[in-house]
Design a protein around this nucleic acid. Structure first.
Lengths: 347, 347
DNA sequence: GTGAAAGCGCTAACAA
DNA sequence: TTGTTAGCGCTTTCAC
């Protein structure tokens, strides 16, 4: 719906300006590289298109090619750094290839048909990037019925063909190792729950690092937090209330859980990092914004979104038929929340 | 690009199933309410469409009607609660009316032509929701050239026809008033800078509340923080370093600035709220996640996104030619960061 | 109240 | 190398 008064330039306008047929213009402008067009003609056309400020009508192109040149991204929440970093990356990846990105906010616990309705609006996208918190969510069930290719981001689920996910195990190992290197031996772990893949991966990494250092796994130091601030707080309280020697460090599995844990530590006047070190996985602006600034293992979240978008386009084009990739942690980001354990309690 | 093996149902399939002409089906299905179609026919068609699971091809419809049924939203950053709350609301508003929402991430300081290029990708949207931090940003200059209607969100800029914005002055007044009600008299204010509208509005509200309580405006209690965590921290430090009697409360104008201020207070072991109360404007998950939980004046951010989307659709439809609206603060949310001033320092 | 038909702007055979 | 042409699926006059 152009503004009144706006002149819309079409292919045939450009053709007229370049005095050739519109099909030739189409050949040149649709970028089909291996088209046989005389160099001189091509330049004339390009010049005319530029002069007229031609922009293709994507509806027409879409009608013809049965493509929308639009990617969808389904997200369960937006107030979570992980998702918006993924979105940012995906938007960039899509944009670079001439696609746009539509977002679809799908409540994790939405009734099945609502999720379904939104997903199948997928008839307006060529492919779907899917993020979900829960391996068995409505969104995941719905998306299987989508008529377009999709790529699951940030999770690996059995039976789903295309998954991009993080090497959570390695990340957890790095985080735990950092604490061990600082001299910690009693390291609490706030664990996930609902999500076997992720949870198991991180738990495994935690155990591995403990193992390698010859530290026995102690169930008294592990509590289930899930992935929320609230859960992190509850789990932290639970561990502190258990009695026995207090841990000197805690590793909540996500930034959100870490936030909750930090709140409890503040509340109980346990100094970070003097009395207790804290580290988590997934870096983000939020980590720098806490006090003290949080040490993390940073993950290539935006990159996953970026590569995910580009890969999805390949999937759409048929350039590729499956996509599975694991993203390794980027680096340990040691900030102010980790330090050697208090002298008295060192082993 | 439907998955191989997927049958695509078109209007004529439905027509065949309902044994009538496809134009009749179109009349019924495009929801043109005042169409003369026999009730019995209409039902037959609806039934057939449902049975076949018909879904309109939006490219075709778009080509015919020169509409895309897509709204764009331009955002300068995503790691800011305000923007993603707006997005959430806008997505809902768009979805309810059968539109989808594409996001366009435009760096505030992007070179003009980059912003322009992204905006004019607007030829794939029917209208634009525009958010910006800066009254004079590239994004704003670019959008004026867009070929579609647009609505500026969260800011009021002279010369821009359609603006939805908050009553920042009232919000600031409420925040300041809350501190005054608690007994505070030396109230610091961390102010914006680049953005006259917002900044001036809030500053005005702060002054009004002070005035009404008979407290003189003291420039020593005001510093410029801008809208970032870093800026909030710097401004807070500056005020604390100025000497003279320390303020008993601080009102940073945004959640981000408040975060920075809180970090500094923690650093300098100034207890919140015992030694210093903190309050800000714009509620959000982040406020609950800080320690101590932040008191705020909550604003209808998501609602602005929601109403903005719906209004933009009216603008597109020509149902309406201009839109200007001011959203009042929702409520004072008193959490743990505000309390009466320390006894010794009460006036 | 319903059908016939034109055409939106584009791409992709096919012809030349 | 370039032009001609059919038609993607839909809405919308215009007949009937």
């Amino acid at each position: 719906m152009p503004k009144p008064g706006t002149v819309v330039v079409t292919l045939s306008d450009v053709a007229a300006a370049a005095s050739c047929d519109l099909s030739t213009v189409s050949r040149v402008l649709s970028g089909d590289k291996n088209q046989r067009v005389r160099e001189e003609t091509r330049e004339r056309i390009l010049a005319a298109a530029k002069a007229l400020d031609y922009r293709p009508n994507l509806s027409a192109r879409g009608l013809r090619t049965s493509r929308t040149y639009t990617l969808g991204i389904a997200v369960p929440q937006l107030d979570n750094p992980v998702y918006y970093q993924i979105i940012l990356g995906a938007e960039r990846g899509a944009y670079e290839r001439g696609y746009s990105l539509v977002i679809s906010h799908i409540e994790e616990n939405a009734a099945d048909d609502s999720a379904y309705a939104r997903i199948v609006q997928a008839n307006r996208v060529d492919g779907l990037l899917v993020t979900t918190l829960d391996d068995n969510s409505a969104i995941l069930r719905a998306v299987r019925q989508a008529r377009v290719p999709f790529l699951l981001l940030n999770r690996k689920v059995k039976g789903v063909r295309n998954c991009y996910h993080f090497d959570s195990r390695a990340a957890a190992r790095m985080a735990t190792q950092h604490l061990i290197d600082l001299g910690h031996r009693r390291i609490a772990y706030l664990s996930g729950q609902v999500h076997p893949t992720l949870g198991a991966g991180r738990l495994a990494g935690y155990c591995e690092a403990l193992d390698a250092a010859g530290v026995a796994y102690d169930p008294a130091l592990v509590a289930i937090s899930g992935y929320t601030v609230q859960g992190g707080a509850t789990a932290m309280r639970e561990i502190l209330a258990r009695g026995g020697p207090r841990p000197t460090a805690v590793f909540p599995l996500t930034l959100t859980a870490a936030t909750g844990a930090m709140m409890v530590l503040h509340e109980q006047r346990i100094a970070v990092p003097d009395d207790m070190s804290v580290i988590t996985v997934h870096d983000g602006p939020m980590a720098e914004v806490m006090y003290p600034q949080l040490s993390t293992v940073s993950m290539p979240v935006e990159q996953m979104g970026y590569e995910g978008a580009q890969t999805l386009i390949e999937l759409i084009n048929g350039t590729r038929t499956r996509a599975n990739r694991e993203f390794a942690p980027l680096a340990l980001v040691a900030r102010a929340s980790t330090a050697p354990p208090p002298a008295a309690t060192t082993t």
